[in-house]
Design a protein around this nucleic acid. Structure first.
Length: 555
RNA sequence: GCGCCUAUAGCUCAGUGGAUAGAGCAGUAGCCUUCGAAGCUAUGUGUCGGAGGUUCGAGUCCUCCUAGGCGCGCCA
């Protein structure tokens, strides 16, 4: 239990004993350092409920708190002062020695610093990207890939057993269309006339696949129907997708084939719903009563001609996920699927799973620009910039960082010209530079001080004045926030707080570096500062690792 | 028509119902014989889209309105 929690439970105890009110108690990080290290608004909350003066209530709480603290060995030495600030905040000031404890903790825990065991053993499934295997990945898929992967890493840090899954829609009309398109292209290569459906896929990659078939098989596939071409194209495209994702640093535990869902699984799902009275049969089709779950209308699961709709497949797919023992499912979708949210959530509930076990995150679109020109994203027209092209042009780290610095539900304008031009001023390099800088200092220190083993440096029982410069204190405080940043991300299912945090941490490191030398004549100070930058290195390394961004020792 | 997302500094964006709303970029002026200047320091900038409401307290929650994006199929 860290100190923050210890203090929080003490405040809870005091409030419980002295005020018979129901309030939620929390400790915040004050916006300014004049307000101390922690603060709580509890006095104002209580005063509001009891129609009393906030400052009066505050004084009373502080009085009781001080009494308790004097009796508590564990925190007696850490809390320096408790002050009341208008309009009624209670601010806690800590002794600086406790700051050195933070460094000791980071050093001791190393790569585990910031990890939590809170969700240990809980299985969580995160399904993302799941792009139709009818064309190359676009930049929008890239955003989902970066976000889903980083979020998965964050959840893993909270103790979850995380499973990454990609749902391959290798069944349905879009696959038929793909087959027809490739077949037409192939026949065209043979000099035959073939009608090209208006709805068909037209990109250069379609031609490339047709050429590949021609190169391998010659004219022998002339009589094959669309299914053969669909199969061939599917395998080829899916392989490209997997390669792209791998290159982007995203590895899935499972590529789940829609086709692998058996008829029995779908019938079982429908049967489950039927037993609970959520199935409606009319006009030869089978409907799910999604209206009962807030949807606009009931939705078809099986068409009157017997074919299963996407929704029908999807229900069976989600039931399958649950049957594999996941306590929680997370789906990342594009905004074009938001209308689909109510019916799927309804179906999950109808199947008998608690609705809060399914979280759906809508990752907003990315608009691609080159300067002021918007580049259209249309898979069927075949004119678009692929994720692969962007990674090659901008680089993996910068591309990932860009996607991860913004809220998932915000629209994103990605200007290739700007991203490329500013690539050296890109915040990701700022963080990586801080990291490389620390590595350099550590190298330098090894030369200056012959035998040095940073992990053996201990500041226990040392004077806190060793690290009492403004830049040092701020850096240590920032380091101490790392665990709560990770848990905040996990709780909000967002990644960008971590990105922002790493930037701020790097900024403090740079400030410190420019103001103070680490390696000096004074051995004690040198060791203390070495430990400080070493701890910073650990946190940056871990943070970047979670984001899936590399931490180079040199740049 | 209905639904979802967005609106914060010149630009790109942070901001967990709390204290004087913050960063970067762009601008200006400084800082390298000393651990990497891809860096640091200083400097100013706001009708938080608009109007109501809830609250001790609203950029944050609720209602309505405006603007932009997206979606509303027995397509996926």
């Amino acid at each position: 239990m860290d100190f923050r929690e210890t203090l929080l439970s003490l405040v809870e105890k005091v409030v419980k004993e002295n005020f018979s009110v129901q309030v939620s108690i929390s400790l915040q990080k004050p916006p300014k350092k004049e307000f101390g290290d922690f603060s709580t608004n509890i006095a104002m909350q209580i005063a509001s409920l009891r129609k009393e003066e906030p400052q009066e209530v505050g004084r009373e709480i502080i009085h009781k708190l001080k009494q308790r603290i004097r009796e508590d060995e564990q925190i007696k030495d850490k809390v320096k002062e408790i002050k009341l600030a208008p309009p009624g905040f209670i601010n806690f000031f800590l002794h600086q020695d406790s700051l050195l404890d933070v460094l000791e903790e980071i050093k001791r825990e190393g790569k585990d610093y910031g990890s939590s065991k809170a969700k240990k053993g809980k299985k969580i499934n995160i399904e993302f990207v799941s792009a139709n295997p009818t064309g190359p990945l676009t930049i929008a898929h890239g955003r989902q890939a970066a976000f889903g992967d980083a979020l998965a890493n964050i959840l893993k840090e909270q103790g979850y057993e995380v499973f990454r899954e990609y749902y391959v829609n290798d069944e349905g009309t879009q696959i038929d269309l793909l087959g027809e398109s490739v077949r037409a292209c192939y026949l065209h290569l043979l000099g035959e006339k073939a009608s090209f459906s208006e709805e068909g896929y037209k990109g250069d990659y379609i031609k490339a696949i047709a050429q590949q078939i021609f190169a391998q098989e010659g004219k022998s596939k002339k009589e094959e129907d669309k299914d053969f071409f669909a199969r061939f194209a599917l395998d080829s495209i899916l392989q490209e997708i997997k390669d792209d994702l791998k290159r982007f640093g995203v590895n899935f535990d499972l590529y789940f084939s829609q086709r692998s869902l058996t008829r029995e699984k779908i019938e079982k799902a429908i049967e489950t719903l039927d037993k609970k009275g959520y199935i409606l049969r009319k006009e030869g089709a089978i409907f799910f009563k999604s209206k009962e779950f807030g949807d606009d209308k009931d939705r078809v699961l099986v068409r009157s001609d017997g074919r299963i709709t996407y929704f029908g497949w999807d229900i069976a797919y989600h039931q399958d996920k649950y049957s594999r023992g996941f306590a929680k499912l997370i789906n990342l979708w594009g905004p074009d699927h938001h209308g689909y949210l109510k019916r799927l959530k309804g179906a999950i509930e109808a199947l008998g799973y608690p609705k809060e076990t399914l979280s759906i995150i809508i990752v907003q679109l990315v608009s691609l620009y080159r300067g002021k020109d918007k580049i259209p994203i249309s898979t069927r027209a075949g004119k678009f910039i692929t994720l692969r092209q962007v990674i090659e042009e901008i680089g993996k780290d910068a591309t990932r960082f860009f996607f991860l610095s913004r809220r998932s539900d915000s629209h994103l304008d990605f200007d290739l010209q700007l991203a490329k031009k500013k690539s050296l001023e890109n915040p990701v390099y700022y963080i990586q530079y801080a990291y490389a800088r620390i590595c350099n200092i550590l190298e330098f220190a090894k030369k200056e001080y012959k035998q040095i083993n940073i992990s053996s440096i201990s500041l226990k029982d040392k004077e806190s004045s060793l690290l009492n410069k403004k830049e040092e204190i701020e850096l240590i405080k920032k380091l101490s926030e790392f665990p709560s940043i990770l848990s905040l991300c996990a709780q909000k299912l967002e990644v960008h707080p971590l990105t922002t945090y790493l930037y701020e941490l790097s900024s403090l490191l740079h400030s410190f570096y420019n103001q103070h030398r680490v390696v000096t004549e004074n051995r004690e100070i040198t060791y203390a500062r070495l430990l400080l930058v070493y701890c910073t290195k650990l946190v940056i390394e871990k943070g970047l690792g979670v984001l899936g961004i590399s931490a180079p020792t040199r740049m």
